[in-house]
């Protein structure tokens, strides 16, 4: 019988597959992780709203008449959908595009710069991504809802 060189350590909590219902409330996600999951969420949102995006592309470009219809959809609604709801969906798209755009540039920067691949830079650039995307969304959202 040989003895163990080091005494066994007390068991530590292991996170393998996290459970969405029991672990998410206690799982601490760093800013870089929040940016990462929001990159996915914003991508999926834009994928699902692609027909709405192309509808906007279509009606705003096809003719003078359809351009007026495009504007009217945001102001007085379209069919049974009220204008404020269309504006809200557009605002969600604005956020998704801004977040995906800025987080994408962050990815590209980390791909070309070794200096950018550090824990510190990952943290600060994630904070900048979150702050910038939310700030620009607020600025453009205020314009969309006619606050200025």
């Amino acid at each position: 019988m040989t003895e163990l060189a080091t005494p066994p350590r007390p068991p530590r909590r292991e996170f393998r597959n996290i459970n969405a219902f029991t672990d998410l409330t206690t799982y601490r996600l760093p800013p870089a992780g929040i940016v990462s999951i929001l990159h996915r969420v914003s991508g999926i949102l834009m994928f699902l709203l692609l027909p709405f995006i192309i509808w906007m592309f279509d009606t705003s470009l096809s003719s003078d008449y359809s351009f007026a219809r495009f504007k009217a959809a945001f102001n007085s609604g379209l069919g049974f959908v009220p204008g404020w709801f269309i504006k809200l969906v557009a605002l969600a798209l604005i956020w998704a595009y801004l977040h995906h755009f800025i987080a994408g540039l962050r990815h590209l920067w980390m791909d070309v710069s070794h200096a950018a691949v550090t824990k510190e830079f990952g943290h600060t650039s994630a904070m900048v991504t979150l702050a910038l995307s939310i700030l620009l969304t607020l600025v453009l959202g205020a314009k969309l809802f006619g606050l200025y």
């Binding site: 994928f47 692609l50 027909p51 192309i54 592309f57 279509d58 470009l61 096809s62």
Partner: peptide, 17 residues
């Protein structure tokens, strides 16, 4: 199917102008 359909629609819009 979703993506190819959307791309076709967008391309058609583009050449209407």
């Amino acid at each position: 199917v979703w993506l190819v359909g959307c791309a076709g629609w967008a391309i058609q819009v583009l050449w209407k102008i």
